[in-house]
Design a protein around this nucleic acid. Sequence first.
DNA 1: CCCCACCTATCTCAATATCAGATAGCAACC
DNA 2: GGTTGCTATCTGATATTGAGATAGGTGGGG
Lengths: 294, 294
Amino acid sequence: MRLSLDHLEAFVAAARAGSFSAAARRLGKAQSAVSTAVANLEIDLGVSLFDRGGKYPLLTEQGEVLLRDAQAVLARCTDLQSRAGAFSEQVDARIRLGVDEIVPQRFLVDVLERFSSAFPQTELELLYGTLKDVQTLVETERADLGLMLPMDFPDKSVAARLLCYLPYCPVASKGHPLAQLSEISPAQLEPHRQLVLTSRGGEREPDSVIFGSRTWMIESTQVIRELVRKSVGYAFLPRHMVEEDLAAGHLIHLPVTLEQAPHQVPVYLIWAHARPLGRAGQWLMEEFSRIDGA
Amino acid sequence: MRLSLDHLEAFVAAARAGSFSAAARRLGKAQSAVSTAVANLEIDLGVSLFDRGGKYPLLTEQGEVLLRDAQAVLARCTDLQSRAGAFSEQVDARIRLGVDEIVPQRFLVDVLERFSSAFPQTELELLYGTLKDVQTLVETERADLGLMLPMDFPDKSVAARLLCYLPYCPVASKGHPLAQLSEISPAQLEPHRQLVLTSRGGEREPDSVIFGSRTWMIESTQVIRELVRKSVGYAFLPRHMVEEDLAAGHLIHLPVTLEQAPHQVPVYLIWAHARPLGRAGQWLMEEFSRIDGA
DNA sequence: CCCCACCTATCTCAATATCAGATAGCAACC
DNA sequence: GGTTGCTATCTGATATTGAGATAGGTGGGG
């Protein structure tokens, strides 16, 4: 006969309660039910679980070990059931979150930490990208929510909510020729190599922030920062990524005079219009919306 | 209704096979059985597991997550069953092995490594002691097998098999007064502090190896070795424990002239007369018996 | 030493769940 | 449009499980 959860439950209850009768009372069943359940389990497994010599049944050596196995099975069952319970109450089974790599980690870490305890049943998938990558993820249903920094406007193909602005600034290393000037016009930037962000999708930053033809296109802002440190070129980088290096004097904030400078880049929360989110997704949206530039 | 293993099995089989009919064929059941099992599971959990829109049922997002949970439950079930299968074939559920702390680790490690793969279902409990501690463990049924180094004869209360001899030697640190002598009589040992092994049970080494009254009784051979290194006293220690220190010159093998010196201490495998061991225990006995001084 | 309280195993009958087979409705492919 | 293979559902037969009752055993207390 096949292993049955009722048998295992009777076994565990009997081991815990110390007697079959007590276990039956606790389970709200008849004593005979527990007795036969355990007996059948013993037959199925071919192992005697209890020593019935005395008044109270005593776990055998094998029973002691198998008890832990049985408890493990039941524990996974309650895992499954509690997760299913969450799902049936409209909690998302999984949230796939697309994030621009520029988004400061402290934005995420705090929210995700609370998320993990508020929705322990929900799986999280964290996808990273640059520029329009995140929007593409949401459009193609590979992500449910996204945190995006569009250099131009976000497309209408996704719903968006403005969260805050991140300041940007032009930087070069201490030894870079540009770092020696006290005022810089766009024309003066021209002869120097600019490190420009590109994305997996192939776009690059808008022309309004590209000054000249000596550019390197790089898919990672982290790598751009490293190359700026090594004086390979200059770049426009989000302020929070270079804060420490500016304070330490390793990098210099270039005094560029620009009319339409992207000194502020908006951070948007985006999601697909059509797809309804469950509780976990709504919770995340609310939490992210609470971030207002602070 | 209660969660049932058959339901879970049908769910997993259907997800794997890609259709309920295929799952039914694989399980050797009727298609209706699988169909109703999955339907009941969905009712029980309050979650729809498959999207039945197309020809083939497709896992929903929730179904995908719950599938892993279900697989986990079934995996633990097979764990339990395979362990029970081993037990029903006379494999021990648990082996409690008492070991004298002097037994060289390489004696154990090799055997236990092979043991773990030969009997993955068997729990191992490793208990350490000195002198007669191990024998006490076996006598009082707290251990099934023991590796013991009796300073005198092993009692008849347990069954014993001689495995090999371990060489002992008297040692002191390089700076110790005894280390300066080129020949040492028992009388010359007298005024110096001897570090003597005692046990949890309270016995100590036999009088034949105690020379004088200035003794410290210590329960750990490891600690004795450390104290000898620090020149707190001299001691008789198993050769393998001081090999490196002798080679490096930190410790000196004292040239003591003894008639009845315990230059060799026997290592015994012991077990309770009455208790029958299963396959795992017999395997261990055989493996240990194969150790013949090598 | 015996009695009583409490335990377990087992029997029986009723209730319940499960299964195979048959049927009807659908989707995909030729 | 026919064919194939799929799913849901109904039905009667079967098997499992449940409670209740009974008999037999253990252990502590008067």
